[in-house]
Nucleic acid binder design. Structure first.
Lengths: 107, 107
DNA sequence: GAGTGCGGGAATACATTGTAGACTAGATGA
DNA sequence: TCATCTAGTCTACAATGTATTCCCGCACTC
């Protein structure tokens, strides 16, 4: 039994990585989240969360040669570990259970 | 545009209240969450969160005469405000968007 | 009718997450 | 070679999540 749930933002970051599949570069993931969630995500917030989740074993990453024509430092390519997916499943299950039957109330 | 999302736990509390409809007494809501989420919720965590959400205008409450045969202080009967529902909808929308297409990955 | 156990709740304190802002460093091109 | 663009890092602080401990009033019991 997990000590606690995934935070809301952590969850979004994890899902953003999965959405991008094999091209989960930091920036792309960030854009994915901004698009889906409809709000800005600062770099600081984003990478801090990522590093903390790495410490918890939910994500891993490796550097990749800069792909873009322009640009700077080696990019980080992320992926979600099995533990991360497990945590995601647990969070989703709990939320779905609570949402059940509330569709009309919530519109 | 909300400054930030609802936390995971806040969301659960709000949903728990809605689930209980007109009988959203503190204790009942807490049990509801424990059942759905499959983990314990300490009283402290629960009421602290509730009070903070009251400050943000997401919930309101009034006291109700003690209904139970046994025991104590007037209970608090909660309800979610329109602002609370709006916040809930926004969180759900963002999460659903991110979950889209990941069912097989997440099993 | 004082002592005690119990059901709710409040207060307090601390750990974990969320977020912003300023800062670094490699690549490009005028 | 310097301005500037991109991707990422660091630091500090605010907001949320959580456990612990305390309080209060009822009703039971003797």
């Amino acid at each position: 039994m997990p000590k606690s749930f995934l935070g809301e933002f952590e969850q979004m970051v994890l899902l953003g990585i999965l959405q991008r599949g094999d091209t989960a570069y930091g920036i792309d993931v960030r854009k994915e989240i901004e698009k889906s969630a409809g709000r800005e995500v600062s770099r600081g917030a984003f990478y801090t969360t990522l590093d903390r989740m790495e410490a918890k074993g939910y994500v891993k990453w490796k550097t990749a040669a800069p792909v873009t024509g322009r640009g700077g430092m080696p990019q980080r390519l992320f992926r979600v570990t099995p533990a991360g997916k497990r945590a995601l499943r647990a969070s989703r299950k709990a939320l779905l259970t609570l949402w059940r039957g509330l569709d009309e109330v919530l519109g």
